[in-house]
Structure formats: structure tokens, C-alpha cells
Computed example of a mutant assay.
Amino acid sequence: MSIDPTQQEEMMRRLREDLLDSYDEELEMELEERNMEELAAHGQPRSAEERLARRTYFQELFRLQGELVKLQDWVVANKHKVVILFEGRDAAGKGGVIKRITQRLNPRVARVAALPAPNDRERTQWYFQRYVSHLPAAGEMVLFDRSWYNRAGVERVMGFCSDDEYEEFFRTVPEFEKMLARSGIQLIKYWFSITDEEQHSRFLGRIHDPLKQWKLSPMDLESRVRWEEYTKAKETMLERTHIAEAPWWIVQAVDKKTARLNCIQHLLDQIPYTEVEHDAVVLPERVRNADYIRQPVPSDMFVPERY
């Protein structure tokens, strides 16, 4: 079916608009990231320097997301298996970077595992058992939003495990991760590091933002009280589980945007991907049958057009 120049121009205009709309959605999402300083400024216009920094951030984010798509294609083509762990204090920005990494990827290739607290049955299982079922098959990447390191952090600090269980974790986890490496799974571990003051500011932001209050749990609030205990637990965890087969990488995360860019670039650097060639995609002509009659749809089935 041929398309005249006017139709071609209109189609290109619509494609451009769709692309801009998708980018606008990303910009709107960033409005959620308003910090306490912006709120205190009562909506004052951004300075030229702030606008430039914002524009640079989005340019780099879109570029890196393009590279992530290439990485995804390479992982599928080479049947690679990747596990990426994201750990850190509450409000450290783990969810934000996971969202930006997976935003433009195929959810069947790049899966997110964010496990809830174990149920009664799971508490009687081998500790790593419920995590094993989420490990990748060939051609998959799995991003753990918190992981088996819960035992070294929240479970230790909040008293959800015994001293014996805690020590058994440290005896087992290096062997478990070495076993994953021998099986062909590449394991990358990130710790997102923020200051006491920054966590305090982000918690206040969640308290005063109705769209973010759901992110606060009683456990999060208790973590403020036990800041130093969490620090000691983190230091022990890094010391005892930083192994050659799966080293820890620390992301300085006080600035959310630079943390995202730095983490994504580092992730790309960990995997020797190359661009995978694809055959050109050709849209086939629609088949039109002379005897086909489209049936009318009852008017009461349509969603009301209120906008």
C-alpha cells in the first residue's frame, strides 16, 4: 500500500510526537524527585546552571539506556546469565536506579526480584532457597531489589535471626556465590551509600509527599533509631563477603542523579558486550478480504471520554 507525501509527513509527525511524549513522561517522573530545598523555595524558577545540569542528566540517561538495550541484545544472543544485587540503607536510591535500568528493556529479559518478608513455610527452608528460584536462565538478567544480604542487615539489626544463623550465613554465602560463578552466572553487587543527613532529608520528603508515604514502613522509621547498628552490620558484611568472584561496589548516592548515571555506566563496563546485528524490520502489508465485515461495538462498552 503506497503512502502519498502528505500522509508520510503526517505519519512522521505522529512518530515524533509519540517519541517526545515518552520523554515527557520521564520528565514528569523526575518531578517526583523534588527535594526539600525545592519545596522550601516555594517553586522558584530553576537557575540556568540547574537547567543545564538537568538537560545533561537526561541526555546521558537516554544515551546509557540505549547502551543497556545493546547489552540486553548481547545477553540474549550469547545466552549470558547476570544477577545484579542492589543493597543499601532505606531511601538510598536502589529502586530509582533499578527503574532507570529496566525502563526501556524487555521485562522477559531483565526481571526485577523484590521479595517480601519470608512466610512461615519459607522460614523453615534453607535460607537461600527462596532466592534460587529467581536466578536467571540463559539470556536473562535478574535485578534483586534487596537480596539474601537481608540476613546480614535488617535481620541482624532487628533480631530476626539468631547468632548461629547469622554466622552460618557468613560461612555459606561465599561458597554460594562461588557456586553461582562456577555455574556461569555473573554476579554484580552494589551498595548504595548515603549520609545520615541525606537519609533524614529523604524520609522527610516521603512524610510530606502523599505520593511517597507508602514507601515508609515502621521498619524504615526504626532504621533511623538504629543508624549506628546498621553501620556496624554493613561494615561486617562488606568485610566478610567481598570476594574475588563477586566483589562489592560502592555507589556514592547522596546525589540521586549522578548515582544513577555512575551505576549504569559501571554496570555496562562489567560486561564485555558488543552490538548485535539485526535484520532490517519490514512491516508486511495488511491482508484485506473482500468478504470481511467489521461488527459494530455496543456504545456502552466504551470507556467514557472525559479528557
Rank of each mutant, 00 (worst) to 15 (best):
Q7S: 12
E9P: 00
R13E: 13
R16C: 00
E17S: 08
D18F: 13
D21I: 06
S22A: 13
Y23E: 12
Y23D: 11
E33G: 15
M36W: 03
E37Q: 10
A40Y: 14
H42Q: 14
R46Q: 11
E49G: 03
E49N: 06
R54T: 12
T56F: 04
T56W: 07
Q59K: 01
Q59Y: 05
R63S: 05
R63Q: 07
Q65F: 05
E67I: 01
E67N: 11
L68F: 02
V69M: 07
V69H: 00
W74C: 05
V75I: 13
A77F: 05
V83E: 08
L85Y: 09
L85I: 15
R89L: 04
D90N: 06
A91L: 08
A91N: 09
A92E: 03
G93C: 06
G95P: 03
K99H: 09
R100L: 01
T102A: 01
T102E: 03
Q103W: 01
N106Q: 09
A110Q: 02
A113P: 06
A114I: 03
L115T: 11
L115A: 11
P116N: 02
N119G: 10
N119Q: 01
N119H: 05
D120N: 15
D120I: 14
Q125T: 13
Q125E: 14
Y127I: 05
S133D: 12
H134M: 10
P136Q: 04
G139W: 08
V142K: 07
V142Y: 03
L143S: 10
R146L: 04
S147W: 05
W148P: 02
N150I: 09
R151Y: 06
A152C: 09
M158P: 03
G159N: 05
C161H: 13
D164G: 06
E165A: 14
F170A: 01
R171P: 07
V173L: 10
V173Y: 02
K178F: 03
S183Q: 09
I185Y: 07
Q186Y: 00
K189V: 06
F192H: 09
I194A: 08
D196H: 15
R202G: 04
I207D: 02
H208R: 14
D209I: 07
D209E: 02
D209V: 07
P210R: 05
P210M: 07
K215E: 10
L216R: 07
S217Y: 04
S217V: 07
P218E: 01
L221C: 10
L221T: 15
R224S: 07
V225K: 15
W227D: 13
E228T: 06
T231A: 09
A233I: 00
M237R: 02
T241C: 00
I243W: 01
E245P: 00
E245A: 15
A246I: 08
A246W: 03
W249R: 14
I250M: 14
V251P: 00
K256P: 06
R260N: 00
I264P: 02
I264Y: 01
L267V: 00
I271D: 06
I271E: 01
I271G: 13
T274M: 07
T274F: 08
E275M: 00
E275N: 01
V276R: 09
V276K: 05
E277H: 14
E277L: 12
V281Y: 13
V281C: 08
V282C: 06
R286V: 14
R294V: 06
P296K: 02
S299A: 14
D300A: 02
E305W: 11
Y307D: 04
